[in-house]
Design a protein around this nucleic acid. Structure first.
Length: 478
RNA sequence: GCUCCCUUCGUCUAGCGGUUAGGACACGGCCCUCUCAAGGCUGAAACACGAGUUCGAUUCUCGUAGGGAGCACCA
């Protein structure tokens, strides 16, 4: 007999709530979910959980959509909005109410708080005690909530792909609210209905939901729905071991775009958090899908390490080309207020800078002198390299460069070498002063490529400025 | 407080009863070198603790400790 999973199409979903930006932990859950679906030739769906009408915003919905697009986690079909499904939730709620599996509760917030305080004082798990279960009279003027009748005895076992079988005693559970007094369903209720209606076979989510799963399973059973397979992903923690949150800094996925990270690098970093394939570190998307196996997912939480992300990002920048990332680099330059028409084409500059930048943003910052004139030389670099002793060689080089008809790195290199030889200097003794002259400071790509990129006109102008600087220094020294 | 989950270098991890416990980031040293990088070589760095099972435990079981999460008319 064929296993159910063999004849069924695997369908997973990512179900974030639009109450802020798209969280880095969320995108990692989405990634594993996406990977699992792709690996098994299934579907990956997106559902926006916006039943909390108070906190959900359109802006946040857009942030989710933008984040999915930027990271390249493509989903099948259109995103499902829970707010479009209000009537369906009511329908199922009515069904539960009429079958006696749910009941109306008129307890006030104060009453509930009091009850829980008393339970905690007694060393018990704070939980709703079911006092409205058998209530028949409605209370005027109070809009009731609907509670689900959770079994009070026995236990449920969650079969989890990552954590194995986890058993919960029903006595620990309580009658949860499934419809709020405003008529909207709560998370636990809408998830159960949506996952069923969307034919979701595998539920991937953070393992902060593991404790909630038995409650949902009871509703699934009451409704006669098929139980999905669960995979509770370990949390991502901050460096201090606490759950990753805003206070740890960059948790907004789109923030990484702004900071100059490549989406492939972020995804690659994230896939290695809690999952591995031997000693491999860098994976293409195809390799990730090919190698991915849920049994290799580590059940333990992991700490987010920005330095490792930086390294991965740099690996992707080095492996990338100007054709691929030129537009992103240009965007970073423009963010810095640079007019990219005032210098070389970013896509062509990329090659010279890619081995010395951790992010596209840092790369842009390191090449500002290609597009803007600087007001002064870096003090330390100038003091060390723009000395009177190098004045004559620089004058000679200035002339040689001015005479170059073809402004190529090779010709520039030869020019520097020739002048260095003429004055019996090592290449670097002349190269470094030139670097300071054209860039204003002591760091740049190889000097010949640097000078070529700066351009002939600008280079000669900057030589003039530097020569004046040295002359002034000479005069001051007397 | 109760319930659940988790535990290999500082960090991410490999390991799936017998290994000099491997790799990666970060850190130190050396090489390369016109700067900075990149790259190569190299060093230091871990099985939380205690019982048990076993000829033999990092690996299996149970405790302990530590960490995380849940206990809402938030998801």
């Amino acid at each position: 007999m064929a296993e159910l999973k063999d004849i069924m199409t695997i369908r997973t979903r990512f179900a974030p709530s639009p109450t802020g930006y798209l969280h880095i932990g969320g995108i990692r859950t989405a990634l594993f979910c996406w990977l699992y679906a792709k690996k098994h030739g299934g579907d990956f769906l997106l559902r926006i959980e916006d039943t909390d009408r108070e906190r959900s915003t359109q802006e946040s919905v857009n942030a989710i959509l933008d984040g999915m697009a930027w990271t390249g986690l493509d989903y099948d079909g259109d995103a499902v909005l829970q707010s479009d499904r209000f009537d369906r939730y009511r329908e199922v709620a009515d069904q539960l109410l009429s079958s006696g599996q749910a009941y109306q509760c008129y307890c006030s917030k104060d009453e509930l708080d009091e009850m829980r305080a008393a339970q905690v004082a007694r060393g018990e798990n704070p939980r709703y005690d079911g006092r409205c279960r058998n209530r028949v009279d409605a209370e005027d003027g109070i809009k009731p909530v609907l509670r689900f009748k959770t079994p009070t005895e026995g236990s449920v076992t969650v079969n989890d792909l990552i954590h194995g079988d986890v058993t919960f005693e029903n006595a620990q559970l309580d009658d949860l609210v499934i419809i709020r007094s405003d008529g909207w369903p709560t998370y636990h209720f809408s998830v159960v209905i949506d996952d069923h209606d969307m034919d979701i076979t595998h539920v991937f989510r953070g393992d902060d939901h593991l404790n909630n799963t038995p409650r949902q399973i009871h509703m699934i059973e009451a409704l006669g729905f098929a139980r999905p397979v669960y995979a509770h992903m370990p949390m991502i923690l901050g460096a201090d071991g606490a759950r990753l949150s805003k206070r740890h800094g960059a948790v907004n996925v789109m923030g990484y775009k702004d900071e100059g990270y490549l989406p492939d690098a972020l995804i690659n970093y994230l896939v290695r958090l809690g999952w591995s394939h031997g000693d491999d570190e860098i994976f293409t998307r195809e390799q990730m899908i090919d190698y991915f196996d849920i049994v290799d997912v580590n059940p333990a939480a992991s700490k987010f390490n920005g330095e490792k992300l930086d390294w991965v990002n740099q690996q992707y920048i080095i492996a990338g080309t100007g054709t691929e990332h030129g537009a992103e680099l240009a965007a970073q330059l423009e963010l810095l207020g640079v007019d990219i028409n005032n210098g070389p084409v970013p896509a062509e500059v990329y090659e010279a800078f890619k081995e010395r930048a951790v992010t596209l943003k840092a790369m842009a910052v390191s090449m500002l002198w290609l597009y803007q004139d600087f007001d002064a030389f870096d003090e330390k670099a100038a003091k060390k390299n723009l000395r009177p002793v190098i004045k004559e060689p620089l004058i000679a080089l200035h002339q040689t460069l001015a005479g170059l008809t073809e402004w190529t790195a090779a010709n520039i290199h030869n020019a520097i070498q020739a002048v260095a030889d003429q004055f019996a200097l090592k290449f670097g003794k002349l190269g470094q002063p030139v670097r300071v002259i054209v860039t204003g400071a002591g760091v740049s790509p190889p000097i010949d490529a640097t000078v070529e990129l700066v351009g002939k006109e600008r280079t000669l102008e900057r030589f003039d400025v530097a020569l004046e600087y040295i002359a002034a220094r000479e005069a001051a020294a007397g």
